[in-house]
Design a binder for these strands. Structure first.
Length: 725
RNA sequence: GCCCGGAUGGCGGAACUGGUAGACGCAAGGGACUUAAAAUCCCUCGGCACUUGCGGCUGUGCGAGUUCGAUUCUCGCUCCGGGCACCA
């Protein structure tokens, strides 16, 4: 819309451009399975899934304060807000109250957390990030009776062992109990104006700056159920309504925030957990002591270690029925409503009489207007009467469609499954095909998706499983997180649009050189500052291979028997190098996709071939050996530079198709060095090198070492220790 | 603040479980071929210095430690990148 082009044509143009480019690079995708998630043929099934989720209670609508990006005119999920700014356009987000649809990802929290352990093919880093994002904390939920009232304040704490150190109570400004607490009290006005002020502050709060802690006394007290003490109730700006219960028992001696608050408002500080080796005193403390330790001044629990006290205190609370063990998670439900013009419509109808009605399945898909006419109006959906006017599926009266669309992350949460039956007209997925193909053996994506896309996909996989479409729990068995490509200091990404277009390189050097160059530049998981310097090297290398093959074309005509058992030294050297190269390339690729080292191994082989097959015809290498070396080169390079290799394969007289050739096999026997260099260290310093046969034993080495002139020079006495490696 | 990574020549990057640091490539310099250029080939290329020898010392962010021996292991820092962040 920014560009004044209809998003449909813009998107499809982009897809065409991308497809051409991928083809130009020679990437072997199965284009028969291509899908476009913006096509109604795809999102109609997404709408069906939405309805099935709704039926299962996995979708609900509620009013919340959302993160609003005024630039994109849309709501963002919490995961999509980065440093207080929109992940897509970098605009500051602002809070806004509105209705929205939510996916109940929290129903799967524990499973999503537990199963992280199963993801052994994922980088530890991503697993950790997801674990932190889910943010499980265990502790105690405990009721504090409000004095002279029937209400209770329920708090959540992960430090029940500090409960005897409570000296006040802090409530979030949004806490529903506040009204009751202040009604008719002298503090009422003060509290109200504080709340008002804080709410405004929160709106403006910039994400990088933690505002100073403020609070105000409500005039009410509650009772600490463990020691019966009166605890003043405050309202504080740093307590979050969204986390835990929106109420915090304040233990200034053992919580830094409470400490700062207590100092500011001159509230008592009472240490109740003594860390080992120190003696805390309320007056001397300059910061809170958050370490575990031994309990003091804690009634029956005095003398216990923190860890045990936590358990016992929870037990006591449960026994006396004023509290219980409780687990809280940071993860919250996934708000999917977006106010985009371009997105999959949420299949819901609002009827004044019947309320919220799902669109009947036989009326799917709910199609975006203008998708068929690219010149259609760029008007937001909620202003397009043609779109939103409909009839209620229940009573038939006039009704209004939902005009929100789904977060585009919904599309990407299951596309990989749709690939298994991309043209299925009967259902979102073909269960058999999905069972055959999934999970995805190897998934590749940028680290930037570590939380968003990968968490949503894990969630969706479970939803689809529970809806009966899939039999798997986890979508991606092995994950490779690519590093980001940095261009001019900024990360290159699809959404930012500063992507380097390889077509220039392709035009100048061809697809193969471009591929080889980008693979050779760095291992895939590493960030890479884009720099086309060095592409000449790749080009030179391929030319070298080409010339070398031409030079030795006759080797491919002679049908010499390949007897490698009695080769002379030079021949054997190349034969060995060939097999060592197979081993190295295979290993590099299979282990961690380190194409850069695979390529350098082949380069070494090529260097060796040209060195050995040099000018002197008397020293010529046997045809069979050269042939094997060159054939191997072509086979090994094939995945990286397919067009070139296919041509070389033909050129060298093969009538087989290279695609169908098996990967070369290592002759481990041949790859073994028969002569090795033994490094002699004296006092840990390299002093000499001697050549020896590979299966030399330690005694012989010792003998040789002692006979070695240079070694003796440095010994000057005797050799006290010999260590072998 | 907390949790992860990372730091190796002028540059991109190698080095499997502690054992030849700098593979492979780029850039640079010198040379050969050429009328000339391109292409190609050969040589040099971490630093230092009394380099008379194909040798010496030093060197993998900094400082300690373990070890005969550390880019690799341990501890303490510095810097850079990423994630989380008033989460009770």
């Amino acid at each position: 819309m920014k560009r004044g082009i209809h998003p449909a044509s813009w998107t499809y143009d982009n897809i065409d451009y991308m497809r051409d480019q991928l083809k130009a690079m020679g990437l072997s995708y199965d284009w028969d399975r291509e899908i476009a998630t913006c096509n109604p043929k795809y999102y109609r099934w997404e709408q069906l899934i939405f309805l099935q989720m709704l039926e299962k209670g996995l979708v609900y609508r509620k009013e919340t304060t959302v993160n609003w990006c005024d630039d994109c005119k849309t709501v963002l999920a919490r995961e999509q807000v980065i440093d207080g700014a929109c992940w897509r356009c970098d605009q500051q987000v602002i809070p806004k109250t509105m209705h929205g649809w939510f996916f109940k990802i929290t129903d799967y929290t524990e499973e999503l957390l537990q199963d992280l352990d199963k993801l052994t093919g994922w980088p530890e880093k991503v697993v950790t990030m997801q674990r932190n994002w889910i943010g499980k904390s265990q502790g105690l939920a405990c009721d504090f009776q409000v004095e002279d009232a029937k209400e209770k304040v329920t708090i959540f704490t992960t430090r029940p062992d500090t409960i005897f150190g409570v000296t006040f109570m802090s409530l979030a400004v949004e806490h529903p109990l506040i009204d009751q607490l202040i009604k008719g009290r002298e503090q009422e006005n003060k509290v109200r104006s504080f709340i008002e002020k804080t709410l405004i502050e929160k709106q403006r709060a910039s994400a990088d700056q933690e505002p100073e802690k403020h609070g105000v006394f409500t005039g009410s007290y509650c009772i600490n159920p463990f020691n019966g003490e009166r605890v003043p109730i405050y309202v504080a700006n740093f307590v979050l309504m969204e986390y835990g219960t929106g109420a915090v028992m304040a233990v200034p001696a053992h919580d830094q925030r409470d400490f700062e608050f207590a100092v500011k408002y001159k509230l008592p500080i009472r240490p109740v957990v003594q860390p080992q080796g120190t003696e805390l005193s309320a007056t001397a403390m300059e910061t809170a002591s958050e370490e575990p330790g031994t309990l003091i001044d804690s009634g029956d629990f005095t003398g216990m270690a923190s860890a045990e006290a936590k358990i016992r205190i929870i037990e006591r609370a449960e026994a006396k029925e004023f509290g219980k063990a409780h687990i809280t998670y940071r993860l919250r439900d996934w708000g999917i409503s977006r106010q985009r013009y371009w997105g999959a419509p949420i299949p819901i109808i609002y009827c004044e009489k019947c309320g919220i009605q799902p669109v009947p399945e036989d009326q799917l898909p709910v199609v975006l207007p203008g998708a068929d006419s690219p010149d259609g109006a760029h008007v937001p959906l909620h202003k397009q009467e043609d779109f939103y006017t409909t009839t209620c599926p229940k009573c038939g009266d006039c009704a209004r469609r939902e005009t929100d669309t789904m977060d585009t992350f919904v599309e990407s949460s299951w596309y990989f499954a749709r690939y298994t039956s991309p043209r299925n007209e009967q259902a979102p997925l073909d269960k058999k095909a999905a069972a055959y193909w999934l999970s995805v053996d190897q998934y590749i994506g940028g680290v930037e998706h570590a939380i968003l896309h990968l968490l949503y996909s894990r969630f969706f996989t479970r939803v689809l499983r529970d809806l009966g479409y899939l039999e798997i729990d986890e979508p991606f068995t092995n994950l490779l997180t690519q590093g980001m490509v940095i261009k001019d200091g900024a990360k290159m990404s699809k959404s930012k649009g500063n992507v380097v277009d390889p077509s220039e390189l392709i035009e100048k050097y061809g697809a193969d050189t471009t591929r080889l160059f980008s693979l050779f530049a760095a291992p895939p998981e590493r960030d890479l500052e884009w720099n086309a310097q060095g592409v000449d090297g790749s080009s030179r290398f391929l030319n070298r291979v080409y010339r070398l093959i031409h030079q030795h074309l006759d080797c491919f005509n002679e049908n010499t028997a390949s007897d490698f058992s009695s080769l002379d030294t030079r021949n054997n050297q190349l034969y060995r190098k060939t097999h060592q190269t197979i081993a190295r390339v295979t290993d590099s690729i299979e282990k961690n996709f380190h194409f850069n080292t695979a390529i350098s191994a082949v380069m070494e082989l090529i260097n060796q071939i040209s060195a050995l097959s040099g000018d002197d015809p008397k020293n010529a290498i046997e045809s069979a050996v050269i042939r094997e070396a060159l054939e191997t080169t072509v086979l090994l390079l094939f995945p990286m530079v397919p067009h070139f290799c296919a041509e070389m394969w033909q050129l060298t007289g093969h009538d087989t198709v290279l695609d169908h050739m098996p990967w070369p096999e290592v002759n481990t026997e041949a790859a073994r060095e028969e002569e090795i260099t033994i490094v002699i260290q004296v006092n840990g310093k390299v002093r000499s090198r001697i050549q020896a046969v590979a299966d030399i034993d330690n005694q012989q080495i010792e003998k040789m070492a002692l006979a070695d002139e240079r070694t003796n020079q440095f010994l000057q006495g005797k050799s006290p220790k010999k260590l072998l490696w």
